[in-house]
Design a protein around this nucleic acid. Sequence first.
DNA 1: CGCGCTAATGTAATCCATTACATGTGCGCG
DNA 2: CGCGCACATGTAATGGATTACATTAGCGCG
Lengths: 377, 377
Amino acid sequence: MTEHQRGRKRRSIKTNNASSSATVSDVARLAHVSTATVSRALNTPDVVRLEVRERIAAAVEKLGYIPNDSARALRQNQTRLIGVVVPTLSYALYADFFASLQGTLAQDGYFALLTTSDYDLHSEAEHAIKLIRQGAQGLVLVGRLREKRLANFLAASGIPHVSTYVTDPTDNENIIGFDNARAIREAVEHLVSLGHRRIAMLSGVTTKQNDRAIARVNGFRIATQIHQLPSESWIAEAPYTIEGGRLALRAILARGLEPTALVCGSDMLAIGALQECKARGIHVPRDISIVGFDDLEIAAHLDPPLSTVEVPSVEMGKAAGEHIIALCSRAPAPEKTIFETRLVIRKTTAKPRSREIITQRASRRRTPSDLLVFSSS
Amino acid sequence: MTEHQRGRKRRSIKTNNASSSATVSDVARLAHVSTATVSRALNTPDVVRLEVRERIAAAVEKLGYIPNDSARALRQNQTRLIGVVVPTLSYALYADFFASLQGTLAQDGYFALLTTSDYDLHSEAEHAIKLIRQGAQGLVLVGRLREKRLANFLAASGIPHVSTYVTDPTDNENIIGFDNARAIREAVEHLVSLGHRRIAMLSGVTTKQNDRAIARVNGFRIATQIHQLPSESWIAEAPYTIEGGRLALRAILARGLEPTALVCGSDMLAIGALQECKARGIHVPRDISIVGFDDLEIAAHLDPPLSTVEVPSVEMGKAAGEHIIALCSRAPAPEKTIFETRLVIRKTTAKPRSREIITQRASRRRTPSDLLVFSSS
DNA sequence: CGCGCTAATGTAATCCATTACATGTGCGCG
DNA sequence: CGCGCACATGTAATGGATTACATTAGCGCG
């Protein structure tokens, strides 16, 4: 009866070469114990006698046994996989976020399945659902706004998920984020306190339903309203790239506006704006002050060093990891974790010149491109 | 007999709310077919009658059925998971590589399990093995050099894996890479052809067993030997950071050497060197020529725009993805895919001044830091 | 001496989808 | 008319680890 496994095809490999991966049964046979004991020796060693444990360990070693995780996952109904969808990895902000998240997950034996959506909600939904099908037990997403299909799916399935990089006072989703609107408001406050009244905003594209961008624009609207400044026509949208920043600033200037300060929805836009200013001979911060958003590593190395809003990507990654693990293991988790942003004031913000007039030299660029350079300090 | 499922706890949820995830049995019951037919309807629809298929589709819809992938993976013995270990994601080079790899994997229904090693071979080994335990069917690694434990493990288990960013003529592993040594050699050739004879190399840390860094240094040794130039004392090692680049250049200068050109093991080192030059009033490229490595996006935006070696990260990501999929599905795969690098000559390389003497002003920096700035172009 | 308890291990059910094999139906063709 | 084949579907084995429950041995204590 103990030999009912006799006819198994794998028997021939009993000796050593684990080419076709050994199973608990193989280990059990070699160690002269039952599969149950093998399993226990591996998972709850303290309930197995030392001598037996060593025999099993030797067998495991000899066979090069690796537990089949699919089988374990099937039985225990938990895969230890977390799906992560970020807009892009090319933007250091999200790369750092993921690195932090992944490290946190690893501490508890979880793994991250990562995909990128390229800022496209439809793509995000597709990927998220595929990740679930693939066995992800939870999802970490960026932003709170989702395609209806995904929203329904998440609601119906009850799959644990967290939203990051945002906050939304009106709902009680699981959120790990910060207040985009308030951060922009603080940036505007700073500029106003320096004496600025003609403030433009360079925003990321909001029509793509990027709720971080939308929240930042709303922050701008609120701030301008408080200080009775104009807003709508002082907003320009562009993609989150250096070129986008240039285009956005050009659009503002082309409207005949003469801003003394720019609030940007991202450091990339700020870099583009900075470049455009240089190209036009507009001095920063004397002629125009600029505030960025994200505090990329490069921001501190620009000339002038960029004043910007510091975003706690690393902290969010950690918190998101802890939060989603808690949800997946049914441990208690806080409903929200909201981080503070910090306005880092460097050298691109200053008082406006009194009665300033910006000379808009429509200087044609001669050099092949507009370049980042090092100051000679 | 057809009612042997009767006692199942899940029965009460038969109607709608799929809170506790439906199974094939649930779908089968609702559609009045067997589980086999459900499975077929989902996987090989053409063998199931249309009418039945629709009934099943309706049941799937109604129950919100999602196949349990652990079960499928167990049965079919394939998880569609690929483990990926890169040194870091903070370096755009690897972020882009991964993005490309992931996109390629997704096309064939594979998913990437991503971890970072922080350039530590031990960490790489740990992660790689954990990824396998977690169910990864293949591994994509950076570099060919591995900790012994991992090398043995891979050899013994026969798990499909590819090495990237390197090439090694002496073995026939599965490699998707490029010739680091040759790329550096070409950089040196370029400098020599411009008339340089005093060429220093700023290398990444080779003691960390970073075989990309090692290969690049070897390329430098070979090139200098060919042209009968000095080598060993003209090499400085430092971490792959801007600060590292500065330190390395300082070390070279502190040795009393007066290079007219620098070959750098990465763009980060080159950026640091550029910064240090500016800080010392050394003009680039008039006083010193600089060649970077990697061609990060920022390289073209520096001032002067950096001459550098273009590394085909995106192409490698794609090729690595296709290669590992081929290995995992036992399709034929080429043994190696070697890409060409390309020396992108921008503005940091020029002829050396005849009888040049570098004035080493040990200028104490006054400004708080050394900065990247935009040219006014 | 024997009851009852604990510790250690074995037996077999279980997780869920896939699939080899069996069954049944209907049709074409000799 | 009936054989044989194709098609559609059902039945039940299968994959590997975990774990509820059963069993056995050993020990303490009355």
